[in-house]
Design a protein around this nucleic acid. Structure first.
Lengths: 227, 227
DNA sequence: TTGCCCTAAATTGTTAACAATAATTGTGGG
DNA sequence: CCCACAATTATTGTTAACAATTTAGGGCAA
């Protein structure tokens, strides 16, 4: 059965059902539509997505390798739940990735790229000044993602993206206050300055410290009960 | 329902066909039985492994996420070929992972672990003295793997393992000479000393440099035609 | 020969049926 | 009332058949 019966007849560049389903499930997980620890019922989900179980199962094996679900034989596939300990591990891994990213970007960045990053930094300043936590979080994600993209290292980009998605499965109730937001963005500026100067060692260290400090800020924003 | 997975290691039965097939294909790829760039014929491979195409396809989606194969829609799945550029990218990523590993291990290592690592180092010395390149390579792999294991960071361990397997898909014709082998193992000793002293910053930097130096050694061992 | 179109074979994509395992329900005995 | 246990249902594991796409090859004209 083809997919032409679906609502997008113009799009020819549609992927295989497996990749489509994978992305749909990923969105459901990251948006919280499917909660952590919840089991994915193959029949129900396949029916909901209008596909058979074949492509659905293929998608789950891809998602398992990405760390978003866990497959237990004869029991089913469960949405990953990230513990505080695992979140801290992810921060440590990302600190290493960040160091590499800082070093690489500082040594190959272009003028246009610096302009883009500066724009993202300034957007963060505005979000910070208006105390818009949601905008700051989104802007922060954009800044980091763009910076890592500029390394041109696909593996680094992929790992950064994967760990970022996994980290979203760790739900923290705490929120960073204005003081910590200011420090966080000051660190962004510092990274940016090192990059603009071509100081690769400085950018590497600054970016690495930024992630490790972010881990600390996350920890301090937790309520005692969550630790 | 809770997600409690305390599988009895004794009663652990054979995994699903998907996981079995995944490991078999992985071994075939890493051993070179299936060459880089080669296509995996689903019918033929399924017949050879005595399974149907279902589990086989699920296994390939897992392998794709691990970077060992590439799936092209309507064309098939191909064994990844790692270019020199990609290999260099992998070295860079691993330098970041190594830095984290050095820092973590130095701050939590036990006496027994130091003894194990020292034993592995001494085995490397013996292999080096007898010019046994194969033994050195295998010992080197063991030393790095064990060291990273001692971080207790599963994500770090997983990425280290994955990148190591990917790097094996980059076939280099060059071989390190005795001088480079001596330097390489001297760096191992340096890492080990920092870890034993509990010098986490020193261990981090030493391990990071060791990987970056390894990248350089690999480059220098290539014939000009390969660059 | 070379280039092109058309047909047939090979191969992958998808689905549905069947088998095996786990979860649930119901029932009888204490 | 509740525990043990068999029967039933629900769910996942696996396979085979069918559909769609790509690839290979042969005929034919320029």
């Amino acid at each position: 059965m083809t997919l032409e019966t679906d609502a997008d007849p113009v799009l020819e560049r549609t992927g295989s059902l497996t990749t489509i389903v994978r992305e749909k499930i990923e969105r459901m997980i990251l948006s919280g539509e499917i909660a952590g620890g919840e089991r994915l019922n193959e029949n129900a989900l396949a029916a909901q997505l209008n596909v058979s179980r074949g492509p659905l199962r293929e998608a789950t094996w891809s998602l398992e390798q990405a760390g978003l679900v866990q497959i237990v034989r004869n029991r089913g596939v469960f949405v990953r739940k990230i513990s505080l300990e695992e979140a801290l591990h992810l921060y440590d891994v990302r600190s290493g990735l960040a160091r590499v990213a800082g070093r690489l970007v500082a040594s190959r960045v272009t003028a246009e790229q610096i302009a883009v990053l500066t724009g993202l930094y300034e957007a963060l300043e505005r979000a910070r000044e208006t105390q818009d936590q949601a905008a700051y979080n989104e802007g922060n994600r954009r800044f980091h993602t763009r910076l890592v993209e500029y390394t041109g290292n696909n593996r680094l980009i992929s790992y950064h993206e994967t760990t970022e998605k996994e980290l979203r499965l760790f739900v923290r109730r705490g929120v960073l206050g204005p003081a910590r937001l200011r420090v966080s963005n000051r660190e962004h500026k510092q990274i940016l300055d090192c990059i603009a100067k071509g100081d690769d060692e400085g950018a590497a260290t600054a970016f690495e410290r930024h992630i490790l400090n972010g881990k600390q800020r996350m920890l301090e924003s937790l309520s005692p009960a969550e630790i």
